[in-house]
Each structure stands twice: as structure tokens, then as C-alpha cells.
Design a protein around this nucleic acid. Structure first.
Length: 495
RNA sequence: GGGCCCGUAGCUCAGCUGGAAGAGCAGUGGACUUUUAAUCCAUUGGUCGAGAGUUCGAAUCUCUCCGGGCCUACCA
């Protein structure tokens, strides 16, 4: 460390030494806790109203010192633990010898243990009346300000431990995130899905259209890309005979950041043999609404000032119908790339020359449809050019059996009746290569090994992918993806 | 990538029409044995993000850079 020690740090280091001199280890190896804060509160609240003490019971509680009110010969300290907050009352005449004077060695942020009796204060608040306290871990820096908390977004994200310490809202957000993922696992496990793990280091980018992160595999002396999708490995498992599989894992797309995009993000993908996209839609609405009910206690949330209800059934509308409904170009009328591009340009919408029909239709969808889909909606039956991995819709070769689901004005899920015809899959792959050759940098690529696998036969399969981070945004009401990621990326700080 | 905005004490923020760096919380000393944003008295603490420029004089004006946020465009 350079320069003179910060004054506040020096004070705390001095207290740490004073603790040692008083015979108290500031970082003892063991601690005792008989009750969490919540358990202690429950214990006291079970008392009859006129009783002020739980007789014949002594407890040990522990936590971080988050507030302190010094009253002369009595001191109140608020402890925070994983279950909440708890007040302890330390009185000179109730504490063992010397321990009251030693309270001056306790700072905000320290972890202490308190032994005493459960009681109620004059105002009725559950409290531990202390007879002993011990230092459990001395903190050398002050925690964030007690009332306003920590507001600086950069510090909140770079030093998330301070954010969690200071802001209940942050603790809530990431608790919901964890519980939601657990609820989804339980849902799928109960339906006989196997959770699997597939490689993150891929030989080439596949399964989606995105630029990859690059790395090098030293032991093989070969370059690798970080996966942009889980899709092709999971389908290989269905080909191998696992009928229901899912993976929850990180994808990496080396592209821009926005309120709904983070370069590394968590996806869940599910594949179910003998199911089609309609079966998948029913599963998705049930999975999401039941997770909401389980974790939030309701299927209704507020997101960006709009009330959203996850309760099934969700609205189903076709891509073509929605385009007409929301004033976009009629795709029955503009059936080829040239005419659609002309129409979009006429409407003042970006329509790059390198974009194929699928990309143009997608552009129109983003512009006309997506912002209007606030309540959970399945947008069904996409143009085939946009969906090289999806099976064609019987009776209409221009469309595929695919839906994307939208909530709150953005997409958070995508599903197909998977294309399992290896010959057609190879042809669609070639179409993508042609688009790439024509200058479109964002095409969905396959790999030969996947095509070879597909040639061994894949049962009819319904597949689904969902951005977990976006779902958590909806569940927690956070309007930025960075608020639902514990450690979002930041530029390195150089000295 | 484009537009707008922010960076002042450990934390939350004033100060910005240029003229001696402030408040609250935290800290330190003191009073107080049922407080809970405790209260009261006193008090320490600053490379005003960095650098250059204009000026007698810059936290304040100009430029460059660094970091961040919001909006916007593109990939989930």
C-alpha cells in the first residue's frame, strides 16, 4: 500500500490491536449461533404481550453491526444476518466485566456474536439483552452510509459486496434470480428432463447468428470460440436417445451492450422428443407462470410502469397477422426480397442491401410488432428464411413452426419444431452460406459434425431457448440487464 | 457508433453567473441505562476524476483524456 494510511483505516487497525491486547481474537476460527435474527424475532413474538422476557432461555446470535445507538450506560446495536436484522441491547450492569468499555472497539461493519436473553423493549421490539459479546471479524473499512445506502451505479456493480451490504433491493433481486432458476430446474426435473452440461469452448460458432469471443486451446494448439448457443450439442443428445434434456448455461456474444444485452448471458435451452412447438408453448407458459407464483407469490408483476400477468394461456398470434395488426407491411403481398426491401425503404425503415428476406422481415417485426407485445405473447409461424433450424409448416412452405415469446416489449424466448430432415437441413445451411457470401455477416452456421449426427435420425422434437437474465428483469422489475447480473463487465481501471 | 448527462470528504449530496472548499451520515472527544435515520455539545477529515489552456485568480470557463449513467442504433 502506498502513502500514509488513511485515518479511518488507522483507527480501525488500532482497535484491532486493542482487541488483541484485551485478549480477544479479532478473527476467531469458530463462532456459535443458536438463532438467526428471524428465529429470535419469532421466539419473542410468541410471548404473551405483557411479558418482556423469555425466561429460562439464553441465545447466541451473530451478524454484522449495521447501526449503533450509544446511550451512555446502555448501547443498542443492530445486527444484520442472512435472515434480516436484529437489535441487541448492551447494558453496563448486565455485561460481564470490561465488556461494556470494550464496546468502543466495535465499529460499523464488524461481525460480532452476542450471548444473552430474548426480550422485548419498552416499545415492544424483539431484542437480545446481552450478557457477553465477542468479536467475530473486525472490518477495516466503513460500510456505505446507513440511510441513503450506496447509489453510485459503477461502485454498486464493481463492488457488488458493498451494494449487497447496503441495499435490500439488491439482495432481493439476486435472491429472486437464484430462486427462479431453482424453480425452473424443479419444474423440468419433475417432467423427466435431464440436466446436462455441454462444452463452452467450441470449434466454430454455431446455432445462432452472432460474433464470437476467441480463445486458444494450448494443449491442442487450436483456436476456439466461446459458445454463442447451446442448441447443436443438445440436439446431438436427443439424437443419441436422451428424450428430454436441458442446459442452463452461459452464452457469449461479442456484440454490443444495452439495457437488454450483455455479452455473457445465461440461457436455458430445452429439447423434448415427440413434442412440437405447440407442446413447447404450453410448457413455457406453465413453467414461467408457476415459477412466478412460486418465487413471487403472484403471476402479476410491474415492469416499466406496465402491469404484466404471466398467468396462462398467453396470447398466440402469427407473425403475418401481427404484422398486419400493428401496421407493418403485408408479407402476403411482399413475397420476395426485392419487393419487401423496397417497401421497407418506402416506409423509412433500414433495409441493407446485404439482408435477405428473413432479415428484412425480422427488421419489420422489431419495428412494428415487438414494442407492442407487453403481455406475454407467442408470435408464431416465422418466415423460413429467418429460421434455418426450424421445420416447415405443413401446407405453407414459406413458413416454419417457430415461435418467439415476448413480454414487456422485448423477446425473451424462442422455440421450434426442430428440423430433423438432414437433407433439407443441409440445403438450409447452404442458403445461409450463400447469404454470408453475399455479404451478410450475421448468418446462422452449422457444422458438418452436426449434419452427420442428424443423418443418423432425430425424433420429432420441440426445442426452446430463453434468456434467463431477461426473465429475471421481468420478475424483479429491473429495467437494465446489468441490474440482474451480479458482476457485469466494466472497463479495467488502469493506475 | 451517435446524442445528452455525471465524476467534490469513507458514503449521500450542495457549491458551477470565476474571488478563502461546505452540509448530513460515518469517525474522534464529551453528556445520556429502552433507543431504533436516537438526541445534544465540540471536532478531525479534500490532488474538487487526470492533464493542458484562458485568467491577477479555476471545483466553477475552454480543450483533450479516463471512468460511468441514460437515450438511441445492432445481436437474445
Amino acid at each position: 500500500m502506498e502513502g500514509p494510511l488513511d485515518e479511518l483505516l488507522a483507527q480501525r487497525l488500532a482497535k484491532l490491536e486493542a482487541l488483541r491486547e484485551a485478549g480477544m481474537d479479532p478473527y476467531p476460527p469458530r463462532s456459535t449461533r443458536s438463532h438467526t435474527s428471524a428465529e429470535l424475532v419469532a421466539l419473542v413474538e410468541a410471548l404473551a404481550p405483557e411479558q418482556h422476557e423469555v425466561h429460562g432461555v439464553e441465545v447466541d446470535v451473530a451478524g454484522r453491526v449495521v447501526a449503533r445507538r450509544d446511550m451512555g450506560k446502555a448501547t443498542f446495536i443492530d445486527l444484520q444476518d442472512g435472515a434480516g436484522r436484529l437489535q441487541v441491547l448492551l447494558r453496563q450492569n448486565a455485561l460481564e466485566d470490561g465488556l461494556y468499555d470494550a464496546l468502543r472497539l466495535i465499529d460499523l461493519g464488524d461481525f460480532i456474536g452476542v450471548h444473552g436473553v430474548p426480550m422485548r423493549t419498552r416499545t415492544g421490539q424483539p431484542t437480545v439483552g446481552a450478557s457477553r459479546w465477542t468479536m467475530l471479524a473486525k472490518a477495516l473499512h466503513a460500510p456505505p452510509e446507513k440511510y441513503h445506502g450506496l447509489a453510485d451505479v459503477e461502485i454498486r456493480q464493481r463492488k457488488r459486496y458493498l451494494d449487497l451490504m447496503a441495499n435490500e433491493e439488491t439482495r432481493r433481486t439476486f435472491t429472486i434470480r437464484s430462486r427462479t432458476i431453482a424453480a425452473i430446474r424443479r419444474f423440468l426435473d419433475a417432467r423427466g428432463f435431464l440436466e446436462v452440461e455441454t462444452p463452452i469452448l467450441h470449434e466454430s460458432e454455431s446455432g445462432a447468428a452472432a460474433r464470437p469471443f476467441l480463445t486458444h486451446f494450448n494443449a491442442l494448439d487450436e483456436d476456439r470460440v466461446l459458445r454463442i448457443s447451446l442448441e447443436l450439442h443438445l440436439k446431438r443428445l436427443v439424437i443419441g436417445g436422451f428424450e428430454r434434456v436441458y442446459e442452463i448455461g452461459r452464452n457469449f456474444r461479442n456484440e454490443g451492450m444495452s439495457f437488454k444485452h450483455n455479452p455473457e448471458f445465461t440461457m436455458i435451452e430445452t429439447y423434448e422428443a415427440y413434442a412440437d412447438y405447440l407442446d413447447v408453448a404450453r410448457m413455457v407458459e406453465e413453467m414461467v407462470s408457476s415459477a412466478a407464483l412460486e418465487v413471487l407469490g403472484t403471476t402479476r408483476v410491474t415492469f416499466r410502469d406496465r402491469e404484466i400477468d404471466f398467468a396462462p394461456p398467453w396470447r398466440r398470434v402469427t407473425f403475418y397477422e401481427a404484422m398486419r395488426e400493428y401496421g407493418g407491411p403485408d408479407l402476403e403481398e411482399f413475397r420476395d426480397t426485392l419487393s419487401l426491401r423496397r417497401e421497407l425503404l418506402h416506409r423509412g425503415i433500414e433495409a441493407p442491401l446485404t439482408a435477405g428476406y428473413g432479415k428484412l422481415a425480422d427488421e419489420a417485426m422489431s419495428h412494428y410488432i415487438e414494442p407492442n407485445l407487453i403481455q406475454p405473447t407467442f408470435l408464431m409461424d416465422y418466415p423460413v428464411e429467418l429460421s434455418p433450424l426450424a421445420k416447415r409448416k405443413p401446407g405453407n412452405p414459406r413458413l416454419v413452426e417457430r415461435f418467439e415469446c415476448f413480454i414487456g416489449g422485448f423477446e425473451f424466448g424462442n422455440a421450434y419444431t426442430e428440423l430433423n430432415d438432414p437433407v433439407e437441413q443441409r440445403a438450409r445451411f447452404d442458403d445461409q452460406l450463400a447469404l454470408q457470401a453475399a455479404g451478410d455477416a450475421e448468418v446462422e452456421l452449422l457444422d458438418d459434425d452436426f449434419l452427420f449426427a442428424l443423418e443418423h435420425g432425430m425424433p420429432p422434437t420441440g426445442g426452446f431457448g430463453m434468456g434467463i437474465d431477461r426473465l429475471i428483469m421481468l420478475f424483479t422489475g429491473q429495467s437494465s440487464i446489468r441490474e440482474v447480473i451480479l458482476f457485469p463487465p466494466h472497463k479495467t481501471i488502469h493506475e
